[in-house]
Design a protein around this nucleic acid. Structure first.
Lengths: 128, 128
DNA sequence: TGCTCTACTCTCTATTGGGAAGTAGGCACT
DNA sequence: AGTGCCTACTTCCCAATAGAGAGTAGAGCA
Protein backbone atom coordinates (compact mmCIF):
# COMPACT_ATOMS: atom_id res chain seq x y z
CA UNK A 1 0.00 0.00 0.00
CA UNK A 2 1.47 3.31 -1.05
CA UNK A 3 1.19 6.47 0.98
CA UNK A 4 -0.94 8.55 -1.30
CA UNK A 5 -1.53 12.26 -0.95
CA UNK A 6 -5.05 11.69 0.27
CA UNK A 7 -3.94 10.42 3.67
CA UNK A 8 -4.04 13.74 5.47
CA UNK A 9 -6.10 16.79 4.59
CA UNK A 10 -3.20 19.24 4.29
CA UNK A 11 -3.41 22.99 4.32
CA UNK A 12 -1.83 24.88 1.44
CA UNK A 13 -1.80 28.66 1.33
CA UNK A 14 -1.34 28.51 -2.45
CA UNK A 15 -4.94 27.39 -2.65
CA UNK A 16 -7.27 30.37 -2.54
CA UNK A 17 -10.00 28.78 -0.45
CA UNK A 18 -7.63 27.21 2.11
CA UNK A 19 -8.09 28.71 5.58
CA UNK A 20 -4.32 28.98 5.94
CA UNK A 21 -4.41 31.61 3.19
CA UNK A 22 -6.42 33.87 5.49
CA UNK A 23 -4.19 33.06 8.43
CA UNK A 24 -1.14 33.97 6.37
CA UNK A 25 -2.87 37.24 5.56
CA UNK A 26 -3.58 38.16 9.16
CA UNK A 27 -0.07 37.19 10.19
CA UNK A 28 1.47 39.17 7.33
CA UNK A 29 0.93 42.47 9.03
CA UNK A 30 3.34 45.17 10.12
CA UNK A 31 1.77 45.58 13.55
CA UNK A 32 1.51 41.86 14.18
CA UNK A 33 5.20 41.35 13.55
CA UNK A 34 6.18 44.35 15.66
CA UNK A 35 4.01 43.23 18.58
CA UNK A 36 5.30 39.67 18.43
CA UNK A 37 8.91 40.80 18.29
CA UNK A 38 8.40 43.30 21.10
CA UNK A 39 6.79 40.70 23.35
CA UNK A 40 9.32 38.07 22.37
CA UNK A 41 12.25 40.30 23.25
CA UNK A 42 10.74 42.07 26.25
CA UNK A 43 8.62 39.35 27.81
CA UNK A 44 5.45 40.23 29.66
CA UNK A 45 4.48 43.83 28.97
CA UNK A 46 1.79 46.33 29.78
CA UNK A 47 -0.36 47.96 27.13
CA UNK A 48 1.39 51.27 27.67
CA UNK A 49 4.84 49.69 27.46
CA UNK A 50 3.99 48.13 24.12
CA UNK A 51 2.55 51.43 23.00
CA UNK A 52 5.78 53.29 23.63
CA UNK A 53 8.05 50.47 22.44
CA UNK A 54 6.28 50.35 19.08
CA UNK A 55 6.52 54.05 18.34
CA UNK A 56 3.81 55.57 16.22
CA UNK A 57 1.20 52.87 16.64
CA UNK A 58 -2.24 54.33 17.27
CA UNK A 59 -4.17 53.07 20.28
CA UNK A 60 -6.82 51.72 17.97
CA UNK A 61 -4.41 49.66 15.91
CA UNK A 62 -2.58 48.36 18.97
CA UNK A 63 -5.81 47.28 20.65
CA UNK A 64 -7.12 45.78 17.43
CA UNK A 65 -3.89 43.86 16.82
CA UNK A 66 -3.72 42.58 20.40
CA UNK A 67 -7.37 41.45 20.27
CA UNK A 68 -6.72 39.53 17.11
CA UNK A 69 -3.60 37.92 18.49
CA UNK A 70 -5.41 37.04 21.69
CA UNK A 71 -8.29 35.48 19.79
CA UNK A 72 -5.90 33.42 17.71
CA UNK A 73 -4.12 32.33 20.88
CA UNK A 74 -0.77 33.96 20.12
CA UNK A 75 -0.77 36.24 23.13
CA UNK A 76 -2.38 36.04 26.54
CA UNK A 77 -4.06 38.98 28.23
CA UNK A 78 -4.18 39.42 31.96
CA UNK A 79 -6.10 42.16 33.72
CA UNK A 80 -5.11 43.33 37.18
CA UNK A 81 -8.05 45.26 38.64
CA UNK A 82 -5.89 47.84 40.35
CA UNK A 83 -6.50 51.55 40.01
CA UNK A 84 -5.94 52.47 37.33
CA UNK A 85 -6.38 49.14 35.62
CA UNK A 86 -3.29 47.25 34.61
CA UNK A 87 -3.32 44.95 31.60
CA UNK A 88 -0.39 42.69 30.79
CA UNK A 89 0.27 40.87 27.56
CA UNK A 90 2.56 37.93 27.02
CA UNK A 91 3.37 35.51 24.21
CA UNK A 92 1.76 32.10 24.49
CA UNK A 93 3.65 29.02 23.39
CA UNK A 94 1.98 29.31 20.01
CA UNK A 95 3.00 32.95 19.76
CA UNK A 96 6.54 32.07 20.76
CA UNK A 97 6.65 29.55 17.92
CA UNK A 98 6.23 32.42 15.49
CA UNK A 99 8.59 34.80 17.25
CA UNK A 100 11.83 33.70 15.59
CA UNK A 101 10.36 33.98 12.11
CA UNK A 102 9.07 37.46 12.87
CA UNK A 103 12.38 38.49 14.35
CA UNK A 104 14.06 37.34 11.15
CA UNK A 105 11.61 39.37 9.11
CA UNK A 106 12.17 42.54 11.11
CA UNK A 107 15.91 41.96 11.09
CA UNK A 108 15.91 41.39 7.34
CA UNK A 109 14.17 44.70 6.76
CA UNK A 110 16.71 46.51 8.90
CA UNK A 111 19.72 44.70 7.45
CA UNK A 112 18.83 45.17 3.78
CA UNK A 113 17.39 48.66 3.92
CA UNK A 114 20.36 50.27 2.19
CA UNK A 115 20.44 47.68 -0.56
CA UNK A 116 16.73 48.08 -1.22
CA UNK A 117 17.11 51.85 -1.26
CA UNK A 118 19.89 51.58 -3.82
CA UNK A 119 17.79 49.25 -5.97
CA UNK A 120 14.85 51.61 -5.86
CA UNK A 121 16.99 54.57 -6.84
CA UNK A 122 18.47 52.62 -9.75
CA UNK A 123 15.03 51.43 -10.86
CA UNK A 124 13.50 54.89 -10.72
CA UNK A 125 16.47 56.47 -12.46
CA UNK A 126 16.36 53.92 -15.27
CA UNK A 127 12.82 54.93 -16.24
CA UNK A 128 12.75 58.55 -15.17
CA UNK B 1 37.55 54.95 23.76
CA UNK B 2 34.31 53.13 24.16
CA UNK B 3 32.20 52.04 21.23
CA UNK B 4 29.23 54.29 21.70
CA UNK B 5 25.89 53.82 19.97
CA UNK B 6 26.60 56.73 17.66
CA UNK B 7 29.13 54.75 15.63
CA UNK B 8 26.74 53.37 13.05
CA UNK B 9 23.39 54.80 12.01
CA UNK B 10 21.30 51.73 12.66
CA UNK B 11 17.88 50.98 11.37
CA UNK B 12 15.19 50.02 13.85
CA UNK B 13 11.66 49.20 12.76
CA UNK B 14 10.43 50.03 16.26
CA UNK B 15 11.08 53.66 15.42
CA UNK B 16 8.18 55.12 13.49
CA UNK B 17 10.21 57.31 11.17
CA UNK B 18 12.79 54.65 10.35
CA UNK B 19 12.69 53.64 6.66
CA UNK B 20 12.89 49.99 7.70
CA UNK B 21 9.42 50.37 9.21
CA UNK B 22 8.04 51.01 5.74
CA UNK B 23 10.09 48.20 4.27
CA UNK B 24 8.73 45.85 6.91
CA UNK B 25 5.27 46.99 5.91
CA UNK B 26 5.72 46.28 2.21
CA UNK B 27 7.30 42.92 2.97
CA UNK B 28 4.53 42.00 5.40
CA UNK B 29 2.07 41.22 2.66
CA UNK B 30 0.19 38.07 1.74
CA UNK B 31 0.97 38.35 -1.95
CA UNK B 32 4.61 39.20 -1.40
CA UNK B 33 5.17 36.10 0.69
CA UNK B 34 3.29 33.86 -1.74
CA UNK B 35 5.23 35.19 -4.72
CA UNK B 36 8.58 34.83 -2.97
CA UNK B 37 7.80 31.29 -1.85
CA UNK B 38 6.52 30.30 -5.29
CA UNK B 39 9.62 31.64 -7.01
CA UNK B 40 11.90 30.19 -4.37
CA UNK B 41 10.44 26.73 -4.75
CA UNK B 42 9.80 26.78 -8.48
CA UNK B 43 12.73 28.82 -9.76
CA UNK B 44 12.34 30.98 -12.85
CA UNK B 45 8.67 31.32 -13.77
CA UNK B 46 6.45 32.98 -16.30
CA UNK B 47 3.75 35.43 -15.33
CA UNK B 48 1.06 32.94 -16.23
CA UNK B 49 2.73 30.17 -14.23
CA UNK B 50 2.82 32.37 -11.14
CA UNK B 51 -0.76 33.32 -11.76
CA UNK B 52 -1.95 29.73 -11.70
CA UNK B 53 0.41 28.64 -8.90
CA UNK B 54 -0.91 31.37 -6.63
CA UNK B 55 -4.55 30.58 -7.06
CA UNK B 56 -7.00 33.44 -6.73
CA UNK B 57 -4.59 36.30 -7.22
CA UNK B 58 -5.99 38.96 -9.53
CA UNK B 59 -3.87 40.08 -12.45
CA UNK B 60 -3.82 43.54 -10.97
CA UNK B 61 -2.41 42.41 -7.63
CA UNK B 62 0.10 40.03 -9.19
CA UNK B 63 1.45 42.71 -11.50
CA UNK B 64 1.49 45.27 -8.71
CA UNK B 65 3.31 42.90 -6.36
CA UNK B 66 5.86 41.89 -8.99
CA UNK B 67 6.53 45.53 -9.89
CA UNK B 68 7.18 46.38 -6.27
CA UNK B 69 9.47 43.40 -5.79
CA UNK B 70 11.32 44.24 -8.98
CA UNK B 71 11.78 47.84 -7.92
CA UNK B 72 13.11 46.73 -4.54
CA UNK B 73 15.46 44.32 -6.27
CA UNK B 74 13.97 41.12 -4.87
CA UNK B 75 13.00 39.65 -8.22
CA UNK B 76 14.33 40.11 -11.73
CA UNK B 77 12.11 40.48 -14.76
CA UNK B 78 13.10 39.33 -18.20
CA UNK B 79 11.07 39.95 -21.31
CA UNK B 80 11.44 37.67 -24.31
CA UNK B 81 9.95 39.49 -27.31
CA UNK B 82 8.50 36.35 -28.83
CA UNK B 83 4.92 36.12 -30.01
CA UNK B 84 3.07 36.35 -27.82
CA UNK B 85 5.40 38.06 -25.36
CA UNK B 86 6.99 35.94 -22.69
CA UNK B 87 7.95 37.42 -19.33
CA UNK B 88 9.97 35.48 -16.79
CA UNK B 89 10.50 36.28 -13.16
CA UNK B 90 13.21 34.98 -10.88
CA UNK B 91 14.44 35.65 -7.37
CA UNK B 92 17.55 37.79 -7.14
CA UNK B 93 20.13 37.07 -4.49
CA UNK B 94 18.43 39.61 -2.26
CA UNK B 95 15.08 37.97 -2.84
CA UNK B 96 16.58 34.58 -2.09
CA UNK B 97 17.85 35.93 1.23
CA UNK B 98 14.24 36.45 2.28
CA UNK B 99 12.91 33.19 0.87
CA UNK B 100 13.59 30.99 3.88
CA UNK B 101 11.87 33.39 6.26
CA UNK B 102 8.83 33.57 4.00
CA UNK B 103 8.73 29.83 3.62
CA UNK B 104 8.73 29.55 7.41
CA UNK B 105 5.88 32.02 7.62
CA UNK B 106 3.76 30.17 5.06
CA UNK B 107 4.60 26.87 6.68
CA UNK B 108 3.73 28.19 10.13
CA UNK B 109 0.30 29.26 8.91
CA UNK B 110 -0.34 25.83 7.44
CA UNK B 111 1.03 23.91 10.40
CA UNK B 112 -0.85 25.80 13.13
CA UNK B 113 -4.13 26.34 11.34
CA UNK B 114 -6.00 23.80 13.45
CA UNK B 115 -4.62 25.16 16.70
CA UNK B 116 -5.58 28.71 15.76
CA UNK B 117 -9.04 27.56 14.74
CA UNK B 118 -9.52 25.88 18.11
CA UNK B 119 -8.35 29.00 19.92
CA UNK B 120 -10.75 31.18 17.97
CA UNK B 121 -13.65 28.86 18.70
CA UNK B 122 -12.80 28.87 22.41
CA UNK B 123 -12.42 32.64 22.46
CA UNK B 124 -15.71 33.25 20.67
CA UNK B 125 -17.54 30.73 22.80
CA UNK B 126 -16.25 32.29 26.03
CA UNK B 127 -17.84 35.65 25.22
CA UNK B 128 -20.80 34.58 23.14
C1' DT C 1 -16.61 68.84 42.44
C1' DG C 2 -13.45 67.91 39.26
C1' DC C 3 -8.85 66.26 37.90
C1' DT C 4 -5.97 62.22 36.89
C1' DC C 5 -4.76 57.73 35.33
C1' DT C 6 -4.88 53.55 31.91
C1' DA C 7 -6.92 51.09 28.56
C1' DC C 8 -9.81 51.11 25.48
C1' DT C 9 -13.96 52.57 21.88
C1' DC C 10 -16.06 55.47 18.48
C1' DT C 11 -16.19 58.49 14.42
C1' DC C 12 -14.75 59.99 10.21
C1' DT C 13 -11.95 60.11 6.03
C1' DA C 14 -8.18 58.38 2.93
C1' DT C 15 -6.33 54.38 1.06
C1' DT C 16 -6.56 49.85 -0.66
C1' DG C 17 -8.21 45.36 -2.70
C1' DG C 18 -10.34 43.02 -6.11
C1' DG C 19 -13.50 42.11 -10.17
C1' DA C 20 -14.27 43.08 -14.78
C1' DA C 21 -13.35 44.97 -18.87
C1' DG C 22 -10.07 47.22 -22.00
C1' DT C 23 -5.27 47.56 -24.38
C1' DA C 24 -1.01 46.34 -27.26
C1' DG C 25 1.08 43.99 -30.75
C1' DG C 26 1.84 40.40 -33.86
C1' DC C 27 0.81 35.84 -36.12
C1' DA C 28 -2.64 32.85 -38.35
C1' DC C 29 -6.53 31.66 -40.62
C1' DT C 30 -10.17 32.81 -44.20
C1' DA D 1 -8.17 42.93 -45.61
C1' DG D 2 -10.32 41.61 -41.72
C1' DT D 3 -11.30 38.95 -37.71
C1' DG D 4 -9.70 36.32 -33.90
C1' DC D 5 -6.42 34.81 -30.50
C1' DC D 6 -2.54 34.87 -27.42
C1' DT D 7 0.08 36.84 -23.17
C1' DA D 8 0.87 40.26 -20.13
C1' DC D 9 -0.58 43.92 -18.52
C1' DT D 10 -3.61 48.56 -17.45
C1' DT D 11 -7.66 51.13 -16.22
C1' DC D 12 -12.04 51.91 -13.91
C1' DC D 13 -15.08 51.46 -10.32
C1' DC D 14 -16.94 50.29 -5.87
C1' DA D 15 -16.98 48.10 -1.41
C1' DA D 16 -14.01 47.14 2.33
C1' DT D 17 -10.32 48.33 5.24
C1' DA D 18 -6.77 51.17 7.65
C1' DG D 19 -5.62 54.70 10.46
C1' DA D 20 -5.68 59.17 13.08
C1' DG D 21 -7.85 61.69 16.62
C1' DA D 22 -11.23 62.48 19.93
C1' DG D 23 -14.23 60.60 23.32
C1' DT D 24 -15.36 57.19 27.32
C1' DA D 25 -15.20 54.46 31.85
C1' DG D 26 -14.32 53.99 36.47
C1' DA D 27 -11.92 54.69 40.68
C1' DG D 28 -8.91 57.23 43.64
C1' DC D 29 -7.14 61.81 45.13
C1' DA D 30 -7.17 66.94 46.13
Amino acid sequence: MSTTTTDVPRYDAFVASCPSRRLLDTVSDKWVSLVLVALGLGGRMRYSELSSRIAGVSQKMLTQTLRGLERDGLVSREVTPSVPVRVDYELTELGASLFETMRHLKHWAEAHMDEVDANRAAYDKARA
